[in-house]
Simulated scan of single mutants.
Amino acid sequence: MVDEVALMRAAETAWTAHRARHPDVDAQDSRRCLLERHLQRRGDERESDAEELASFGIAYLHRLPEDEC
């Protein structure tokens, strides 16, 4: 299980990278919530550090359909 600080750092890193590639995405887009839930589940499944979780998050956001949410 990953600690809450590492989880939030990973989510912020992944979300920032996603928004840099997609400037039309609003900061409060609901995909952020999906990302955080995904990373929480991922962290619960196995021990991960913030960098590894961030890379999982970036890959997850990349796979989401544009009209997701």
Rank of each mutant, 00 (worst) to 15 (best):
R9L: 15
H38V: 04
W15I: 06
R42L: 14
H38D: 12
S48A: 15
L7G: 02
E52T: 03
A27F: 05
W15G: 04
P65K: 12
A54D: 03
R31F: 03
E66A: 10
D29H: 03
E45P: 00
G43P: 01
L7P: 00
C69R: 13
A14Q: 06
E66Y: 06
R37Y: 13
E52F: 04
A11C: 02
R41I: 01
E68H: 12
L35D: 00
D44W: 09
D44C: 07
D67W: 13
L61T: 07
G43L: 10
L53G: 05
R9P: 00
A54Y: 00
L61N: 08
R37W: 14
V5A: 10
Q28E: 15
Q28H: 13
C33W: 07
E45A: 09
V25L: 08
L53A: 05
E47F: 02
T16M: 11
L64E: 00
H38G: 08
P23N: 03
R9H: 10
D26H: 12
E52R: 11
A14F: 05
A17Y: 02
R31P: 09
T13R: 07
T16S: 15
L64D: 07
D26W: 04
A10S: 03
H22K: 03
D67N: 13
E36G: 01
L39P: 01
S55G: 10
P65R: 15
R9E: 15
R31M: 01
A14W: 05
A20C: 00
E51R: 14
V25M: 03
A11T: 15
R46L: 13
P65A: 08
D24L: 07
H18Q: 12
A17W: 05
D29I: 04
E51N: 10
C69W: 12
M8L: 15
E52D: 13
D24Q: 15
D26G: 08
H38C: 13
L35S: 01
E4T: 15
E45S: 09
L34Y: 06
D67I: 03
H18C: 06
E68P: 05
E68V: 13
V2M: 11
R63I: 00
R9G: 08
A27E: 11
A10E: 00
E51P: 06
R41M: 04
H18S: 01
A59S: 13
R31H: 07
R31A: 04
R31C: 03
D29N: 08
T16D: 13
W15R: 01
T13P: 02
R32Q: 10
R41K: 11
E68K: 12
V2L: 09
A11W: 04
R37N: 14
S48M: 12
L39Y: 00
M8V: 13
A27D: 08
R19N: 02
A20F: 05
R32C: 02
D67C: 07
A11F: 08
A59E: 13
T16W: 08
R37K: 11
R42N: 11
R37I: 01
D26N: 06
R9C: 08
H38T: 04
L34K: 12
R46N: 10
L35V: 02
E36I: 06
H62C: 10
L64Q: 11
E52Q: 10
T16Y: 11
Q28I: 09
G43M: 12
